[in-house]
Design a protein around this nucleic acid. Sequence first.
DNA 1: CGTAACTTTGATTAGTATCAAAAATGGTGG
DNA 2: CCACCATTTTTGATACTAATCAAAGTTACG
Lengths: 238, 238
Amino acid sequence: MIKRLDSRSPLSEADKLALLSVQHSVRKVPAGAHLVRDGEPPEQCALLLSGYAYRYKITGEGARQIVSLHMAGEFVDLQNSFLQVSDHSVQTLTEADVAFVPMQAIREITLSNPSIARALWVDTLVDSSIFREWVVNVGRRDSRTRVAHILCEFSLRLEAAGLAKDHRYELPMTQEQLADAVGLTSVHVNRVLRQLGEEGLISRDRRSITIEDWQRLREAGDFNERYLHHDFVAAARN
Amino acid sequence: MIKRLDSRSPLSEADKLALLSVQHSVRKVPAGAHLVRDGEPPEQCALLLSGYAYRYKITGEGARQIVSLHMAGEFVDLQNSFLQVSDHSVQTLTEADVAFVPMQAIREITLSNPSIARALWVDTLVDSSIFREWVVNVGRRDSRTRVAHILCEFSLRLEAAGLAKDHRYELPMTQEQLADAVGLTSVHVNRVLRQLGEEGLISRDRRSITIEDWQRLREAGDFNERYLHHDFVAAARN
DNA sequence: CGTAACTTTGATTAGTATCAAAAATGGTGG
DNA sequence: CCACCATTTTTGATACTAATCAAAGTTACG
């Protein structure tokens, strides 16, 4: 986690020590547990040490839209950190090890340590960039492109997190959850996945995805990784 | 602008003075001008003093998705402030007065002044919350609900900015732009607007919108203003 | 093993897009 | 102030994508 922050907004050794010594408690949380609930005040900030989680909102009609997916090393709750009431829920997708940090500790360290504040802020800005791309994905791409796009995104993010390689990864989501992330029905996602398989772009085995032809899937998904901001260190120059 | 920041994350008088004295240049910018271009490094941070602007991205197919709308008093470019390359473009919707602040100045003041950093950060977190809601809007709501929802959002945001009252406002967007914000075609947006009018929920005159029945439009749009975080001051308790 | 959750397939429908064109509006120069 | 042109709004007809409904397979798990 620290490595990730550092890569985008450099921290001194002292900063890293300060981060490591922030008060927190680690707990193992089962799959399907809520880390944050829509409408409740955020009191702890959860950092995923292992496992997966997703943010979602429910419409008045009862439909669910997943608005982001998070994996080991990511903060799941900085988004709510300085707001009074959570505007969405966060739920684990798998069993997960979670470090809970009291909001108060986050508030204190960010006031006393501007470099850390900066690094956390940058982290939330990257989240925002992904939200924007999801608006586009869901708003302006057809079903095949949408699904291909999200498969590309997951592949790169998991590789960056060291959870995948060679364009092969475990995706611990049901097709229904995938559907809720791309704004389609699970039935349709199923058909699209089959089609992508038939075209030789991907292959699947249970929950594992192998991208057989990265270049073509990238094109099919209208995917450009720039929005992930994986390689940049703007703040490096101060 | 300062008032807005202060309301969500309190600033001392000294902070306010510091903000006011940040180096900047004010320019009048014509409608349709780009403030940020996708793919270019952000060098200045634009603060809208008057007028409107929107962020957008273009898909490989050439379709446009507007990902947010900004009005007087809002920062248009904090989102890119610490990232190396912009992942989207920002264009003015109307003629606008814009204060340009060099990124360097933002970086310096946020390192030296944690309260200001906090306030700006909170501002970007609220932006994120709106992005999330847009993902839901575009991903899981039908056309009528989507349009009603965005009309509600604009009404509250404009009122909060002092640009509207009594649920009546000027919306300087064409129906095509509105369509690009809700992920529909302009033809369909036109039909939905007509329908909302026939149902007595809104009325229109040129670009001005009057919400004739707030309660019913709110229901029609599955609208809950919580995600706008207009009334909260979490950081107040530090 | 038995059962619930998930995936897959098929048939039909609904909602939006697309295409086309007419009407209205707004701005410009004469 | 008017005539003209470009842009925007409106309407209609048709096509297509993805939703819905239903049910059969398959997988995971206690």
